[in-house]
Write a protein that binds this DNA or RNA. Structure first.
Length: 258
DNA sequence: TAGATATCTTCGTTTACTTCA
DNA sequence: CTTGAAGTAAACGAAGATATC
């Protein structure tokens, strides 16, 4: 659904100039203008990672002309980082000749091609180092900040999706355990009913020797003569074959109480 | 070594935009 | 055709972690 929508993303030629936000006169982007990290995470001086490379001037919108949204000729306005580095530069890296006085935040819609490339890159690595970010931004004709934000949102979407999957798995697991618990509970009731039938009881030979620990009320089945409960609990007492092997019902369902 | 600075990330939220009834 | 609700994606801001100077 989301992917389909992304595939339908329209090509836009948006302007990215704007006025500085009054509340963000000193922005994090100002820091970006002075330093950035190299691949090793070390800082490089005198390079603005959010300043679109001057080489990103050529247009590439021809691929999607004709599908632009009627609302697409808007400008990106707000944002700490973008307030400076985006000045007079649109999302294709073109110098804008239109000084928009609007202060409202406007959003662009990434083109189909841009989304596809971003997705492809995300498949390879879901985080980008500064060098990769710059290269990708240059390739797409976007600001590095846009690429960065896209990856942040993409990681968030991935995580959300994974959470939903995990939730579904746990839900199914819970349902299975509930069914199993119900089945065992029923089996215990049937066994207890048999215990109350003396004739049947006397004819039966114990299928096994059960050991119950008085402290934890667990029943263990011995193997090779020594069962685990006897070892762990010296006070464990041997029970008759029809002793209650299952914990009390109220305990059995404790697991599922929330 | 401690503090300042810069950048990254995640998380939660806001907002522009799209879709659909 | 218009409109409003709901959904989605781009963008923002805060906070924490980390690295460098």
């Amino acid at each position: 659904m989301m992917v389909e929508k992304e595939d339908l993303a329209l090509s836009l030629s948006l302007n990215f100039f704007h006025k500085p936000h009054p509340l963000n006169l000193i922005s994090s982007s100002d820091r970006n203008s002075h330093t950035c990290r190299n691949e090793d995470g070390r800082f490089l001086r005198g390079f603005d990672v959010n300043r679109l490379p001057s080489t990103v001037i050529e247009h590439e919108e021809e691929e999607e002309t004709g599908v632009s949204s009627p609302n697409s000729t808007v400008s990106s306005v707000s944002g700490k980082r973008s307030e400076r580095e985006d000045h007079d530069v649109d999302n294709r890296g073109n110098i804008s000749d239109d000084e928009d006085a609007e202060t409202a935040r406007k959003k662009l819609r990434l083109s189909k091609n841009q989304s596809a490339i971003l997705e492809e890159t995300f498949k390879q690595h879901n985080t980008l180092n500064p060098k990769q970010k710059l290269a990708l931004a240059k390739q797409l004709g976007l600001r590095p900040r846009q690429v960065e934000v896209w990856f942040q949102n993409r990681r968030a979407r991935t995580k959300l999706k994974q959470t939903e999957v995990d939730c579904e798995v746990l839900k199914r697991c819970c349902e299975n355990l509930t069914d199993e618990n119900r089945r065992l509970h029923k089996e215990v009731q049937e066994l207890r009913a048999l215990k109350l039938s003396p004739q049947f009881y006397m004819q039966m030979t114990p299928p096994t020797t059960l050991t119950m620990c008085p402290s934890c009320e667990r029943v263990g089945v011995p193997s090779n003569g020594v069962d685990a409960i006897s070892q762990a609990h010296p006070r464990a007492v041997h029970m008759g074959p029809w002793a209650s092997a299952a914990p009390p019902a109220h305990r059995m369902f404790d697991v599922f109480r929330q």
